[in-house]
């Protein structure tokens, strides 16, 4: 990467400022699988992949299907001395539904179900036309910006780790059986990870803005 002593400020389109350190770079056309990082702080900036949009759309579909299964199938069941109790994902969120902490139930539901689902839907909306070589739908920029902004708050993967911790804590007390929803959720976080690996923000923004 060459330094830019006298940037051509006329073509700002060909420039990228690292969001992490503000270093200005020239963008370049990358071939499949190449990854472009910031010269100073090393943040990953561009990582285009062939058929990335299609992959993201496909993974988003997968994620939505899995999420629907995760919501409706039994999640966990414990049994101890003949007593048993089972709970769905929904039931987990509803654990906070009593009293003044009820808003927390909504927050949990949003973090583990609503936001991931929204992000899947939004990605499909944004990327489906792009994947088919058509111009982006209206409001795609707003929708994709929301996808980006809400990303830290979608905590499906954190939830499944939380489940693991809870299982460790309960294991000594009672026997726990894992329901289909649990496995759906496990697959879901893999799908999310795969999807993220295909999502090069710059590339997507670039595609969206090319009307």
């Amino acid at each position: 990467m060459a330094r830019v002593p006298n940037p051509d400020l006329g073509d700002l389109r060909g420039l990228i400022a690292c969001p992490r350190c503000d270093l200005l770079h020239h963008t370049q056309q990358l071939s499949d699988g190449e990854r472009a990082k910031c010269a100073r702080c090393g943040s990953l900036l561009i990582w285009p992949r062939t058929g990335a949009f299609l992959h993201v759309v496909a993974f988003s579909f997968t994620g939505m299907i899995l999420m629907i299964g995760a919501i409706f199938f039994p999640f966990l069941k414990i049994s101890a001395q003949g007593l048993s109790h089972e709970s769905s994902i929904f039931g987990v969120a509803m654990a906070f539904s009593d009293g003044w902490i009820a808003p927390l139930a909504l927050a949990v539901l949003a973090m583990i179900v609503a936001l991931p689902v929204f992000r899947f839907a939004a990605l499909i909306y944004t990327l489906w036309p792009l994947a088919n070589g058509r111009p982006a739908y209206r409001h795609s920029t707003t929708v994709f910006r929301l996808v980006e902004e809400l990303q830290p708050w979608a905590m499906a993967e954190i939830f499944i780790i939380g489940t693991a911790v809870a299982l460790v804590k309960v294991a000594g007390l009672a026997s726990v059986s894992l329901g289909p929803a649990f496995w759906a959720f496990c697959v879901l976080i893999i799908v999310i990870a795969l999807k993220n690996s295909f999502m090069s923000n710059w590339t997507i923004w670039d595609a969206i803005s090319q009307k």
Binding site: R3, L9, L15, I16, A17, L24, R145, W202, W205
Partner: peptide, 23 residues
């Protein structure tokens, strides 16, 4: 990468978007 003395967007009199990187 050692401290690279390079041009930042601010130095260039530009402003970079922290979300999409566009300047």
């Amino acid at each position: 990468i050692a401290e690279i003395e390079a041009l930042t967007a601010t130095d260039a009199g530009l402003i970079g978007c922290t979300r999409c990187g566009r300047v």
